[in-house]
């Protein structure tokens, strides 16, 4: 641990921490990730991604957990986590729909698709459907411009969508 980080990490430890809600498996995977780098801190974004995969989003507990695990000041974990647009702070649905609204998709109807999707799901951007099944957000270019308009549901791409075909796509996700 470098001297620069020692002070703050030590201060964090002084406060009583609630028992971690994070699994041992997650701790292990984060520890494993740190081994790939010359400095543990480099595992921060991988760790945040892992937690988001597990919880669906990040929260205060996640930040404290990672800060402690990687000996990074909490303020810095917040600063870094909040910088990246795909790390989120709001609960998400079981499936997260990211609709690309950048130029190639926009030229081919992304806005109508979003309009239709909002109507169909009955929620606005960042909200979760009442059944907890979906949440949706706009996203910048996902590199599927050859299938514009394109979306990302969890880790799957769906392209060349129309208001009709997107409904069929949604049915694949329960």
């Amino acid at each position: 641990m470098s001297a620069q980080h020692a002070g703050r990490a030590g201060q964090t430890a002084e406060r009583p921490e609630r028992k971690s809600v994070f699994s041992n498996d997650l701790v292990e995977r984060i520890e494993k990730a740190t081994l790939r780098y010359p400095d543990r801190k480099a595992a921060l974004i991988p760790a945040l991604n892992m937690i988001q995969r597990e919880l669906g989003y990040l929260n205060r507990d996640a930040v404290r957990f990672v800060a402690k695990q990687l000996s990074i000041p909490e303020s810095e974990v917040y600063g870094t986590a909040s910088f990246y647009s795909l790390l989120g702070w709001q609960p998400t649905g079981r499936h997260v729909i990211h609709v690309c609204h950048n130029l190639s998709c926009s030229l081919l109807g992304a806005e109508s698709l979003i309009e239709h999707l909002e109507k169909k799901l009955g929620v606005g951007e960042g909200e979760v459907t009442p059944d907890g099944r979906f949440s949706y957000a706009r996203i910048e270019c996902i590199g599927r411009c050859d299938g514009a308009p394109a979306i990302l549901i969890d880790d799957d791409y769906h392209g060349n969508l129309t208001p009709e075909s997107i409904e069929q796509v949604l049915e694949q996700y329960t």
């Binding site: 790939r36 480099a42 974004i45 991988p46 945040l48 991604n49 910088f83 990246y84 647009s85 795909l86 790390l87 996203i139 910048e140």
Partner: peptide, 10 residues
């Protein structure tokens, strides 16, 4: 060699 995933920042 390893993969380092980003988190959404152009």
């Amino acid at each position: 060699l390893s993969v380092h995933g980003g988190a959404g920042a152009y």
